[in-house]
Amino acid sequence: MPGTVILDENWEAFEPVSAECTSGQLVVSLANGMTLSTPLWWYPTLLRASETERNTIELSPSGVHWPLIDEDLSISGMLNGRRYPGAMPPAEAAE
């Protein structure tokens, strides 16, 4: 939902309750029942990480942390469609 604003009074509804990396997606379930799914290519560090590194995940009230690669993503950033500057789909990166 690009442009989503999370107000202080409803922040808890956007707290992550689970997260996983599939072969090509980051999937995060929120306390309000919403599921966020973003392509891994948005996050080159995660894309290059091993399966073990990608799936060693810690949740915080405002985001997701990967301790083995010291990577953090915020729920707010995911909701607003933020990706790493210069991140390109794999087909474009191969050109």
Rank of each mutant, 00 (worst) to 15 (best):
T35D: 01
L40V: 12
S23R: 11
T4E: 14
A19M: 06
M88W: 10
A91Q: 11
N32F: 02
M34F: 07
D8C: 09
L73G: 02
W11A: 15
N10W: 13
N10R: 12
T22G: 04
S37C: 11
P85R: 14
E20S: 15
L68S: 04
S18D: 14
N32C: 11
A91K: 12
V28C: 04
T56C: 09
G86H: 09
M1W: 12
T22L: 07
W41C: 02
G24Q: 13
R54T: 08
C21E: 09
F14L: 05
A31C: 05
A49P: 10
D72I: 04
E95V: 15
D8P: 15
A93N: 14
C21K: 03
E12V: 09
S18K: 11
R83K: 15
V27C: 06
L79R: 00
E12P: 01
D70E: 15
Y84I: 04
D8N: 14
N32V: 07
N10C: 14
L68V: 04
S50D: 09
E58S: 14
L30A: 05
A13Y: 07
L46P: 04
S18A: 15
E58F: 12
E58K: 13
Q25V: 07
I75Q: 00
G33N: 13
T35L: 03
S50R: 07
E20H: 15
I69L: 06
W42V: 01
